[in-house]
């Protein structure tokens, strides 16, 4: 993760940008079994701030994209598990490996979100590895 203070932003912007990560954390806790809850929550938050300043929009987009990636990964895991429970599908080693990777990815994302929420609140521009460049390309000044 990179932390930069590339451009000047104001106190209220830092608070709102940090809220985008904080909100996704609370949504994770509330909608834990259903992957779409977090994505919906971050999307509504993003839409509510779509006309705000560049700094706020940038961090809302990063939070949204991180949830989008998690949504696809978690959805596969969710339906695979449903398949095993209700259709008596085989618990293969591929499933167990996938589940371990899924938990690891969720854990990394959770920690990264907490870190981003704290640093953004201080006014630092936190770019996630890989994701930051995509967000740069999407969000226009």
């Amino acid at each position: 993760m990179n932390s930069t203070t590339a451009f000047v932003h104001k106190e209220y912007e830092a608070e709102k940008a940090s809220n985008s990560y904080l909100m996704s954390l609370i949504a994770i806790m509330v909608g834990l079994p259903f992957p779409i809850i977090n994505l919906l929550a971050t999307f509504i938050f993003y839409m509510a701030h779509s006309k705000k300043s560049y700094f706020i929009r940038w961090h809302c987009t990063q939070a949204l994209l991180s949830q989008l990636i998690l949504f696809f990964v978690n959805s596969i895991g969710f339906w695979w598990t449903i398949n095993i429970i209700y259709l008596n599908a085989e618990v293969s080693s591929a499933y167990l490996i996938y589940l371990a990777c899924l938990v690891l990815l969720n854990l990394i994302e959770f920690i990264a979100t907490i870190y981003a929420a704290i640093e953004t609140r201080k006014g630092k521009h936190v770019k996630w590895i890989g994701l930051g460049r995509i967000v740069d390309a999407i969000v226009t000044k």
Binding site: K16, N19, L22, M23, I26, A27, V30, G31, I37, L40, A41, I44, F45, A48
Partner: peptide, 16 residues
């Protein structure tokens, strides 16, 4: 409250 999701998002938006 949007099946609970909107209500959570509003906790962060409503003051603004």
């Amino acid at each position: 409250g949007g099946f609970g999701v909107w209500a959570i998002v509003d906790w962060f938006i409503i003051m603004g």
